[in-house]
Design a protein around this nucleic acid. Structure first.
Lengths: 342, 342
DNA sequence: TTGTAAGCGTTATCAC
DNA sequence: GTGATAACGCTTACAA
């Protein structure tokens, strides 16, 4: 075993092999556990690798094996408070399995999303977690194993929260609190989450409380003026919002109008973003199993990597109601000036 | 020019060259603009590449050139509301220059940070944006061009916001509003941002208002009980917080204690995270030039890539006061029961 | 169990 | 201007 502690460049597998007095093949077998190697040689190789600070060369390996050791994540907008926690969960899970994560934030722009997907493909990510922009029609599916989060898309593996159940949870809550007139402040119409939450809500409410009206608004705290106006004069006592962000906007609009929450009107959200517990009153909402969502996505990719032919899988993760202070019992009729004057 | 529209595998440069009737070298020159090529051949190559849907192979190129075309971002915790916007800015800028971004979220864990940096190195990122964990001592500097955000670190390029100026801005604000007793609710002592903000604050206040007391708390909305207690009984009329997150915690504690903000006591934050305008009262704070911060970081890396020998550069970006509703004029003395009874 | 050698798809060096 | 050709560092038949 020769003794060359420092060579100018990054140590290569050949260097390790030479230092250990074995062939590159044996060094490779040893370091990857690819083939059985005698204890004697294994130790020599390990020592040499250690001493030379051998780190391997992903690009070379990728070229040879066709796998890059990286996964990709393409999402609409990190500024949407729901995604950072999800991205964190995905990255953590990926890293746990030795994968690096490439991130593309498309800033809610369709063109950026398309280019981002292509960038991922160019870099040869082994798999992709894709949270598509809402309403994205016929984007070509990436070539690598892809799991789509939060959107049902034929052919790909998917992970979603059980939005229907979430809607039902909220409906049950409204009924339990004795509300008889509810206003639905949905997210964008084309978002599939909107459709599923709506369905759960409607089914749950059916025949037991009246849906005073349904509005579709974007996922922003800035409520469209029309929606804000409706919200302020409605005689509904319970407002079910398509997301926490919307709910926070609703809270603001109601406060601005001097309507008291939850005394006069209850407001509930969906998502349980970090803000939800910080606004006043703290928002009652439905929480996703965020880290499970992320973990499931990565796991699905890894499974598909193992078995590319398997049938597409759809995982639906449970949600849970988080009661806080933004909802309460339906108020007595007298407390509604609008009702009284009409 | 032969006509082979579909070959089973991904088209390679040789395929393009063959289809165009040129050598691989010429194809490479053409596609990269590396050497002058006759118009005739250039067109043939471009057409062939187009028709075959040639995409290139980053791993092969990386192996050959030693550049991966990816930058890395290592940050403490995406769940900290300051980072998503920054990450977004960095990713956008990187992609604008054709780079993919690899993300490591170390979940505030030192070990994960170390491993994350190594993962980046293994994947051969061309440059690294590193937002170190607070108080990280002697982590070995990565080998690739690195710009450190928000921490001064000898030898590396750095990008920071002008925290000193920010502190001064807040001090000026307090004085302008007539406050005479201020409480400083700093971030963690070891965070260098804490030190800089404190300095700006102290210098700005010097001799014109009394610093009633200084507390160091973590960057969380959960104020340590001791700090909350102090906050509630203090006779300071102005509380300068080390970050918005801390300020929000302070707001909660004050509300819980029934102290009115800003009537009795003013609270200001630092960072201008998205929450700041959503809490009640909306938080007066100091805003970073977040997207400039991200852009500057990427630009610095790119410049260093161009000129590895240049002296390390430190960029300091301006901050600006964002007045909202959580602060106001110093109350009359009578409004402080504690003063009256003592 | 170990070694030899042939690539993986590019780019760079050299001749022409 | 253009074309052979040799790497880049690794994995993996295949041979021994």
């Amino acid at each position: 075993v020769s003794d060359l502690p420092a060579l100018g460049r990054r140590a290569t597998l050949r260097d390790v092999a030479a230092a250990a007095g074995v062939s590159p093949a044996t060094a490779s077998y040893t370091l990857n556990g690819t083939k059985p190697v005698s204890d004697e040689l294994r130790r020599r190789v390990q020592v040499a690798a250690e001493r030379l600070g051998y780190r391997g060369h992903r690009a070379a390996r990728a070229l040879r094996t066709g796998r890059s050791g990286a996964l990709g994540l393409v999402l609409p907008d990190l500024t949407n408070p729901f995604y950072p926690a999800l991205a964190q969960a995905i990255e953590a899970r990926a890293r746990r399995f030795g994968y690096a994560l490439m991130l593309v934030d498309c800033g809610s722009a369709r063109a950026a999303e398309r280019r981002g997907l292509r960038l991922m493909a160019d870099h040869g990510v082994d798999g992709l977690v894709w949270i598509p922009l809402p309403g994205g029609g016929d984007v070509e599916r990436p070539a690598c194993p892809t799991v789509v989060i939060d959107r049902s898309r034929t052919g790909a593996d998917t992970v979603v929260s059980d939005d229907v159940a979430g809607g039902a949870l909220i409906a049950a809550r409204a009924l339990e609190l004795g509300h008889e007139r509810v206003l639905l402040l949905h997210g964008p119409r084309r978002a599939t989450a909107t459709r599923r939450r709506r369905q759960g809500l409607l089914d749950g409410l059916l025949g037991r409380a009246a849906v005073v009206s349904e509005l579709y608004v974007p996922f922003t705290t800035a409520l469209p003026p029309a929606a804000a106006a409706t919200l302020v004069v409605t005689d509904a006592t319970f407002v079910a919002c398509g997301s926490d962000v919307i709910a926070i906007g609703a809270l603001e609009a109601l406060r601005a109008a001097g309507r008291r929450v939850p005394a006069e009107v209850s407001v509930v959200g969906f998502d349980d973003i970090a803000w939800a517990r910080l606004v006043t009153p703290a928002l009652t909402t439905v929480a996703h199993a965020v880290s499970d969502l992320g973990a499931a996505a990565v796991d699905l990719i890894l499974e598909r990597l193992r078995d590319p032919q398997a049938a597409p899988r759809d995982r639906v993760l449970p949600v849970v109601l988080v009661p806080r202070s933004s909802d309460g019992p339906a108020p007595e009729k007298e407390s509604h000036p609008w009702k009284a004057t009409s």
